[in-house]
Write a protein that binds this DNA or RNA. Structure first.
Lengths: 252, 252
DNA sequence: GCAAAAGTGTTCCAGATACACCCATGT
DNA sequence: ACATGGGTGTATCTGGAACACTTTTGC
């Protein structure tokens, strides 16, 4: 590989006495991972953010994330940071994009590999609890924010979220994201509301039901969801049908 | 941001006397960019590879790429390395994915941000010339390889190419990639051959023509392509139609 | 009994598919 | 003249879109 010319301005950090330093012949950027974690709650898509305890951007809201360890796979790093800061474990991570504008972090050159994850409705409760219970983390607070009304975000995280929404819109047109966001058992109306929320326009109930049922992707659990009105049948995605149909279009 | 535990094994490199070293309190990975550059040549999709002049993987074929400079945007780095090693300039780069398995480079931890680029048919000639004319580059040789019969690749580049093909298949179903791969003026048969090559099955000539013409995306240049047989009308993509239709499905 | 959500079929239209022959040119 | 790729129209089928009323429960 080629030699690079020496860069103009990279001051060596002050070495505290007795501290170990890691030295390289060419300047190296820092690498972080951040995760855009999305769930479908109260009829809207919501994003999990953490409030920064330290500088820079202290008090601002940011995506959960942090530095990659030197012998750690990128996805492992994202999962670790997500668990540390929010308590979310076992979520499926999908790489979204890498952001590396030279000035995106005021401290040093930081390149961030961003992951996207979707959280099923019925797993949100357990997660929120463990998030509050970890005061050792970097986060002063953790909460869900509706995608439509986010607070000011730290770093370039607003641009990252914009990118995630684009990917999300694409994923949601497909089957894959729908089944990741719904709970394990759901009613057809819940599924329809999610699909409507996705594409921002109402769907015809009969056409919707016919379409998803004729595709054979759902199976009845046999249970019913009893609410204040007429009970509704509960469905689940049939795993075998799902396996080879991940990229299939769900919406017309 | 949180402190990370000190990593187990990162030997500091031997410092040659008088050499500048860049030091950090935590170990930093190196970051590279690589580009998957694809064109449609001789009726097949082809990939531009460079033969490595240095170790490791000396003599193996690899994606064009190299280290990111410390104050350089990722995409700029990819464009620079592509130009240095292959002579290709002014191509549209799109971020594909980032590869960062801890052992993907035997020298040190290297995280590679990979870009995907498509090269229009009529720009291939000028490129190949300048590629040969740059012996200062890292590359012992540069050539196109058919995607269907690649040589053994260096590092994890085979996995990267597999990932690129997946993205390419998706892009090619849309309008965007088709117009990037065709020359500025092309016949309907050329366009059909590209589309057939994309989805691996033959298309009906009449249906194909009706579909693309009715969409109003093409306009006749007025010229003809004269070959050994009946001349064919030449078309171009109409820019204004293209602008708001990038994500539109071209194939049924 | 009434408010609210669950559940259920048919008609119509647009767009995709299948299919075969004549035309213009170079050799 | 003939070989080769360029160019054209119609019948049929599939799948989406539009549309309103009955049923079941909790209060």
């Amino acid at each position: 590989m080629p030699a690079m010319p020496a860069p103009p301005a990279v001051p060596a950090p002050p070495a505290a006495p007795g501290e170990t330093l890691y030295s390289y012949r060419y300047p190296h950027p820092a690498v972080t991972v951040d995760t855009v974690l999305i769930a479908f709650l109260q009829g809207a898509l919501q994003l999990l953010l953490v409030q920064r305890r330290g500088e820079p951007f202290r008090g601002h809201w940011a995506l959960p994330g942090g530095f990659v360890e030197i012998d750690e796979a990128l996805e492992d790093a994202a999962a670790r940071e997500l668990a540390e800061e929010t308590g979310a474990t076992g979520v499926q991570l999908e790489q979204l994009q890498t952001f590396g504008a030279p000035d995106r972090d005021p401290r040093e050159r930081v390149i961030s590999v961003v992951y996207l994850a979707l959280l099923a409705q019925d797993r949100v409760a357990q997660l929120a609890l463990s998030a509050e219970g970890n005061p050792a983390s970097d986060a002063a607070a953790v909460r869900w924010w509706p995608l439509e009304s986010l607070p000011p975000l730290a770093f370039d995280h607003a641009a990252i979220v914009a990118c995630a929404r684009q990917r999300l819109r694409w994923k949601l047109e497909r089957l894959s994201a729908t089944c990741e966001l719904l709970p394990a058992a759901f009613t057809l109306s819940q599924m329809q509301r999610l699909c409507e929320c996705i594409q921002g326009e109402p769907l015809d109930k009969r056409n919707f039901r016919r379409r998803v049922l004729e595709q054979g992707l759902l199976e009845e659990t046999g249970d019913q969801l009893r609410g204040v009105h007429r009970p509704a049948r509960l469905f689940r995605f049939s795993r075998e049908a799902l396996a080879h149909e991940e990229a299939r279009r769900l919406l017309p």
